[in-house]
């Protein structure tokens, strides 16, 4: 498992055009980023394309990530997640519907996998656990499955604006908890 320093070093060298460092970066982070793309897109071929795009972006953007003030792994996760969500939105727009909701729901890990993941997931998970169950699920759905307010409103059977009010309140509570 690569350390933060490793990833930082590989990114810095990638920014200098060091292909060997880029390959090491890929070797040690691609499984995590591919898992995330797969979770969001729930389609293997599309997730493979997405991962390729993500690493093309990483190659070109490695020099600028510090400008965003993010830690290296957070930046990689953000690049992967944003790209996967863009693709998901385009696919949904092209399909013109919400057909994907059921399919995406199936991709959620079982309770056991969630418990294991929680052990590593740190503060945000503890703070999500302080929220009411459905509200924490809504935040997770947005982050991990790229669900929109419309998706969430449908899933939780509440009007769109109610969903938004819920979620914004949840975010403010989360932020308070994260800062405690």
């Amino acid at each position: 498992m690569a350390t933060r320093d490793n990833i930082e070093d590989w990114l810095a060298r990638t920014a200098q055009g060091d292909r060997a460092a880029f390959k090491l970066l890929y070797r040690d982070t691609s499984a995590k980023l591919f898992g995330l793309c797969l979770r969001i897109l729930n389609d293997r071929a599309e997730a493979e394309d997405a991962l390729q795009e993500v690493f093309v972006k990483v190659w070109h953007g490695a020099g600028s990530y510090r400008a965003n003030g993010l830690s290296p792994m957070t930046w990689l996760i953000a690049v992967a997640r944003n790209h996967a969500i863009d693709r998901l939105r385009r696919r949904q727009a092209a399909a013109g519907g919400m057909d994907e909701a059921a399919e995406i729901a199936d991709a959620r890990p079982g309770p056991e996998a969630q418990v294991m993941a929680r052990a590593e997931a740190g503060r945000v998970v503890a703070c999500l656990d302080e929220l009411e169950g459905a509200r924490a699920e809504a935040v997770r759905g947005a982050y991990l499955d790229g669900e929109t307010y419309a998706d969430l409103a449908e899933r939780f059977s509440v009007p769109f604006n109610t969903m938004r009010t819920w979620l914004r309140r949840s975010l403010i509570k989360l932020r308070e908890c994260l800062e405690r």
Binding site: K23, Y26, S30, A31, K32, F34, G35, L36, L38, R39, I40, E48, L51, Q52, N68, L70, S71, M73, T74, W75, I77, A78, R81, P109, A113, Q114, A117, R118, E120, A121, G122, R123, V124, V125, R140, Y143, L144, L174, L178
Partner: peptide
């Protein structure tokens, strides 16, 4: 971004096939 990033750990890592590299 930092606060949410650990949630990405809830998506199980999957080794991509060699063709992606």
């Amino acid at each position: 971004q930092e606060d949410f990033a650990p949630l990405a750990g809830e998506a199980a890592p999957v080794m991509p096939p060699a063709r992606v590299w």
